[in-house]
Amino acid sequence: MTATVGYDDVEVGTELPERLFPLRRVDLVRYAGASGDFNPIHWSERAAADAGLPGVLAHGMLTMATATRLVTDWAGDPGAVLEVGVKFSSPVVVPDGDEGASVSVRGVVEKKLDNNRVVVNLTTRCRGEKVLMAARATVQLS
């Protein structure tokens, strides 16, 4: 397990360019099955409305996984992610349609630690709104 990014090649401020990730209803159903989280607010319009929500929501953990992916792809090795933590600040509403929702993720190296570790701060938005706050990953670079 070795990251393809070298510690000496990054500085505080090094950017992980923005990427867009589509989330459709079928993705939520697939995530429900794979994760075991079958809360109906993630697939039933009726359940979401009954709970007073604006629509069917993506699982918070799916949004977190999507944000984390920016880091695992950047590092070149998912095993290089030592820590990841987020606060869920706003729900990702996924309309029933071919387009679904689009989640944008970008990152910036916020801190360089000892032992070739860095902290990446992630900005994750949907329809312009920040859906995660304090989203950070600690990554072992080579």
């Binding site: 809360n39 709970a51 933590g85 987020v86």
Partner: peptide, 17 residues
């Protein structure tokens, strides 16, 4: 009541993959 629950925060620290 699960219908009233929303996720606030989540964190994982991995000693190894």
């Amino acid at each position: 009541d699960y219908a009233l629950v929303v996720h606030g925060e989540q964190r994982f620290t991995l000693r190894r993959p």
